[in-house]
Nucleic acid binder design. Structure first.
Lengths: 340, 340
DNA sequence: TGGCATTCTGTGTACGTTCACAGAAATTGG
DNA sequence: CCAATTTCTGTGAACGTACACAGAATGCCA
């Protein structure tokens, strides 16, 4: 009952005005730190606020101000992200830091089940946030549709889906990173290098293949590229089996993701070969897989905090109305472990 | 400028009413799915909504309804949680699932820097959420103070700080889990078992020692307990060094956390001993440390999703006004790996 | 046809702010 | 000491919704 009383009794600016013997306007001016409030009024108001325990109602303020100083951070596919991918935490922190500097509140919204989808869409369309950062967006998602329909200022981490034409986004330089790590592989003396190329229908997949090709230049051999549909362990294992059958003299392989690489290592060991002595393997993502394999994977680490920070910067820019829409491409680091 | 237009033009319930040739009240009734709206009105309204692109303004609704159907999920110390501790993701998902079932929106708020603290406190006090779930709360935190002052319905994951007397919270059964894993160690044949007891000033630390003592019963030897201040790697390493000097015949050790255990393993190896052949080591938390050590740690896994779900349940109960305040204690699993 | 319940609709007010505006009080200057 | 500023204050509107209430339309039955 104490709770109930406390909640219904929430003091308003009106109560403060009454207590202090001034008007609502004056209290409002004091609270917002404006000029033109006399010393006498100031003191009276301070005392009154303390006495009645006043805290401003942000919902009411948002309503009249038509902005919230908040941006949503939407996370799709949370299971794979939070459990498998250590990057999401750093992306969150990077974004939060940047938003915090601009005095904006970040609210992370998780889209897991079907129900979440509609609820989050309502939340966004309800004017509770000024803008939104989105990771792993899907084209057919109600959330994405709402964002487009309302033209909510948005920044995507990764490529925006489908026809989100004029959206800002930040991606890693897949081409450059794939090229770098392939060159590292060459530098270790590998001569017959193949690639398990996953998800070629996605930009990330296609770009990693492009980088691989660029790095090898004339030495590139089409027949050493094994396309697989998904970034998965089993796809990597099966693809590697086929590749080894076709090219038994392989001495290096670039897997399009760590999961794929883990599968590839499994397939290599099946044939009695050793990693890295017979075949050097490199992956991509520096996900949880990278430390689970034996030996640990050499792989590409995404600048996770940077992705978050840049996404935040982009959405803030759109909020201010500067810069119409932009895309940012970030470089990656390479972490060299035992697998190559 | 398109953006600007779209944002200022947001259609209201009034626009829909005008377009459909009915009144605000009727539109409101339709939107909220109430009875008493004629077929003719229904059709006209549906067409009008489609035409003007109306979406309800949640902020306005929240203001008049005096509730938001949203609960905040506050994460303190995000660096250590998101980077080191894989549990936080599952806690989030567990909570989200439960809240989603009750048709509540979860908004994760990260408290990292000093600035975040005040901003989040304002956010919470502004009536933007009905309740709140808090992990790693601190007593001196403005956020905690606001929650107490406003008597905001809250549920803590872990013990609530200081004088948060009447708060709900969910904790793991530290005593039981420590006791279980110690017994497992005994069952493997260890006879001289020590403990690196960290953070005895915290409930978690004290409880883990209690469990350890319980499990050993008469065999408990006070001199084999080495207290260290923090749950850290270096504390574990230093503590283990002292313990080994005092009791060179040790054949098992229970470290109060995985980080402590990792440090202990380091110290053991320094002396030329082997893990697990000479000394079996077990940890607590199943954090990222557990897979980094060689051999991998046997440890206690927290029921992370359960913690989140229970916290959500508790806060929902307080929201409804049922159950005044409750504490829940959850059992843990043990994962047995190579270190013991 | 009249009475009465039922279904439907419109209007006014409230939620707790901010802001524009008008006007009062205090201050300045010639 | 009066006019012209500057500082201060109160009032009324608006933000976009929900809800209570009154009243209109319809259906039903005697």
């Amino acid at each position: 009952m104490t709770t109930k009383q406390a909640r219904s009794k929430r003091a308003t600016v009106h109560d403060v005005a009454l207590e202090a013997g001034v008007s609502r306007g004056t209290v409002s001016r004091y609270v917002n730190g404006e000029r033109y409030v006399s010393a006498a009024a100031r003191e009276a108001i301070e005392a009154a606020i303390e006495k009645v325990g006043y805290v401003p109602n942000t919902a009411a303020r948002n309503l009249v101000m038509q902005r919230t100083q908040a941006v949503g951070f939407i996370v799709h596919e949370p299971h794979s992200l939070f459990v498998e991918d250590p990057n999401i935490g750093e992306i969150l922190l990077g974004a939060n830091t940047r938003l915090s500097e601009a005095d904006h509140q970040m609210a992370v919204l998780i889209v897991d089940t079907e129900r979440d989808t509609d609820r989050v869409a309502r939340y966004l369309s309800g004017g509770l946030v000024d803008g939104v950062i989105i990771v792993s967006a899907r084209a057919d998602d109600p959330v994405t549709r709402v964002v487009e329909r309302l033209q909510l200022p948005a920044a995507y981490v990764g490529h925006p889906p489908g026809a989100a034409g004029s959206a800002s986004f930040v991606v890693i330089d897949n081409v450059g990173a794939a090229s770098s790590i392939t060159r590292r592989l060459v530098e270790t003396g590998r001569r017959r290098i193949g690639m398990i190329a996953a998800a070629l229908d996605r930009d990330s997949g296609a770009d990693r293949l492009t980088g691989f090709r660029e790095a090898l230049g004339d030495a590139f051999d089409e027949s050493l590229v094994e396309p697989v549909p998904l970034y998965s362990y089993s796809a990597g294992r099966d693809g590697m089996r086929r590749l080894l059958e076709r090219a038994p003299d392989l001495d290096g392989v670039f897997a399009a993701s760590d999961a794929v690489a883990a599968g590839a290592i499994e397939a290599i060991k099946e044939t009695g070969r050793s990693v890295p002595d017979d075949i050097g393997v490199v992956g991509f993502d520096d996900s949880a897989w990278a430390l689970r394999t034996t030996p640990a994977l050499s792989t590409v680490r995404q600048p996770a905090a940077g992705l978050g920070a840049e996404a935040a910067r982009l959405v803030l820019a759109r909020l201010r109305g500067d810069e119409p829409a932009a895309e940012v491409r970030l470089d990656c680091d390479i972490v060299w472990r035992g697998s190559a």
